[in-house]
């Protein structure tokens, strides 16, 4: 099932990205999370128990917005500004975060 964006459509943006290979456009200054939310209403990741999630707090607090960007996992999409040509992948299932005690 494809789920439409939960937001009103905006004019096409000048920047071109891909999400799991599908094209999407964005405006300079958009956070990656905003661009994804504008594109689709579907989950942008799933948890270790397979429950669907999308970006939530939009301010770097909740870590629900983690996606893979140009091969790099666990990127906080709400804190990342879009760049032309970004290849974004949804993160399905659990990915270990490199958190460490110092």
């Amino acid at each position: 099932m494809t789920i439409a964006s939960r937001f009103q459509p905006r004019p096409e943006g000048a920047l071109r990205l891909t999400l799991d290979g599908a094209p999407l456009t964005a405006h300079p200054g958009d956070s990656l999370a905003a661009a994804i939310l504008c594109h689709s209403g579907e989950a942008s990741r799933t948890t270790g128990r397979d429950s669907p999630r999308t970006a939530f707090c939009m301010m770097g607090v909740c870590f629900e917005c983690l996606v893979e960007v140009d091969g790099l996992p666990n990127v906080q999409a709400c804190m990342t500004e879009v760049r032309d040509g970004m290849a974004v992948r949804r993160q399905m299932g659990l990915r270990k975060l490199g958190a460490a005690d110092v």
């Binding site: 009103q8 905006r10 939310l37 939009m58 301010m59």
Partner: peptide
């Protein structure tokens, strides 16, 4: 925040 940063409006 989405309104302020991306002009994104909820449906």
């Amino acid at each position: 925040i989405l309104m302020k940063t991306a002009g994104l409006l909820a449906r």
